[in-house]
Design a binder for these strands. Sequence first.
DNA 1: TCGATTTATATGATTTTTCATATTTCTGAC
DNA 2: GTCAGAAATATGAAAAATCATATAAATCGA
Lengths: 152, 152
Amino acid sequence: MTETRDDTFVSGYLLYLLAASSEEASAQFHDHIRAQGLRVPEWRVLACLVDNDAMMITRLAKLSLMEQSRMTRIVDQMDARGLVTRVADAKDKRRVRVRLTDDGRALAESLVASARAHEARLLSALADTDAARIKGVLRTLLDVLDRPAEGA
Amino acid sequence: MTETRDDTFVSGYLLYLLAASSEEASAQFHDHIRAQGLRVPEWRVLACLVDNDAMMITRLAKLSLMEQSRMTRIVDQMDARGLVTRVADAKDKRRVRVRLTDDGRALAESLVASARAHEARLLSALADTDAARIKGVLRTLLDVLDRPAEGA
DNA sequence: TCGATTTATATGATTTTTCATATTTCTGAC
DNA sequence: GTCAGAAATATGAAAAATCATATAAATCGA
């Protein structure tokens, strides 16, 4: 247990705490995703589309925190698996809208339900004050980050 | 600005908030890392070694949130670049200790200084209450996650 | 002390990811 | 309308990450 004690730079560094929390908090649920034969990026796409079907590839990529060319290929694979279909946008032919198939929607909804349950378990493991604060703090951080930003 | 309004599942989902915060908070600094000709995983190794030189590959991998075989190859490259050297552990010959070279240490220390400065800027962009809370909340989450865990 | 097990690292093969760029379509200035 | 540039997607080639497993060294029990 008594690893090299931790008053180190890394253990208190905000970007480390964020990366590690994200990684570890997601690990269990990501295992669940993979157990369903999906990869994590595919799950992210499904979750986005449940919220808002027929998104463009570009927006899907932004929301799923990944590059456009990667998203293109992920959509390829999901299309091949019958989870989504590509639909041309009538107004703008450059755009590709990604739409859930019935299978895709069913899977997505079931996974969202699992995700909610898993999240509830995570939050219930925290003290009430922490559980109440965590999302707010993260949202605030995201807000700050989305603003133009003045300094380097 | 008025993207499809956001009272969606994803935008309030803890694992998304964590991943997005981590991603976006790190983006600027990671650009800085790459501008120095380093990749992010290499920076992580340097940061770990500044805290605690001559770590084993396995421990380095765990702390840097990546797989062992990947860490082996990253150490290969850092070794080739003259940032670290491999040192056999006298007590246990299976172990490989990774030690900073002088160049590696100089680079690492300079990057840690930048990291601290960047972190200070991030925190100062938050309201005092949020800045005061964020690390504590994340640490609590990490603590909870490291505990055995009872339910599925 | 022998053999079985576990731990630490490395490696080959495959799959992902990235990077740069091509292609198509749209937009705006003229 | 035409042209220059921007935006959305796709794709080839290269780099990186993963997975399974090999190798080597330690540990634990009988």
